[in-house]
Amino acid sequence: MKTLNAGLISIAASLMVAVPAWAGEAASGAAGATQDVIAAKKQGVFAGITAVVLFLVVFAILAAFAWPKIIKGLDDRENKIRSEIEAAEAARQQASMALEQYQKSLAEARAEAQKMIDAAKAQMNSQINEMKAKAEVDAANLKAKALADIEAAKKQALADIYSQSATLATTVAGKILKREVGSQDTQRFVDEALAGVR
């Protein structure tokens, strides 16, 4: 333990000696005059003046040739982006409004069309019904007329038949009365009478 301690102490001691030793060798040949961190006035004041002058020169040049361009460039871009965003927003709003309008008018048109279809249908139906009714009436009329015609024709025919048969009967009776009625003659008379009817 003792030897270890002694060893550590000797190492530490030699390190402490070594730092200045190396540094001293590194600095050997130096002009001497050590400086403080805060330099003497004679050593620093020109550097300070130079800093002020150079800064003002740099500032003047940049204020004239660099910063206006940079500020304008950044502002232009900002304004461009802002206006583009605003335009996009407006366009979106317009589009959604147009869509709404379109949907509304579409719905209106659809309702209108439905109404028109309904009206047309109703009109058609009523027309059909009307036509049907009319047709039925016509048909009934036609039927009635036909029946009446038939009836009239039948009556006419019967009347004709009656008058004809009367005339025929008279003629037949006259002929019969004029001659002897034989069996063959009878048959012949009948045939003649019938031929006369025709």
């Binding site: 730092v19 200045p20 030793a21 001293g24 600095a27 050590t34 050593q43 620093g44 550097a47």
Partner: peptide, 17 residues
């Protein structure tokens, strides 16, 4: 070592103007 110790290390001299 006695001689180099007198020229003590001065880190400040390495950073000043």
């Amino acid at each position: 070592h006695q001689t180099v110790l007198t020229l003590a290390a001065d880190p400040i001299s390495q950073v000043v103007n």
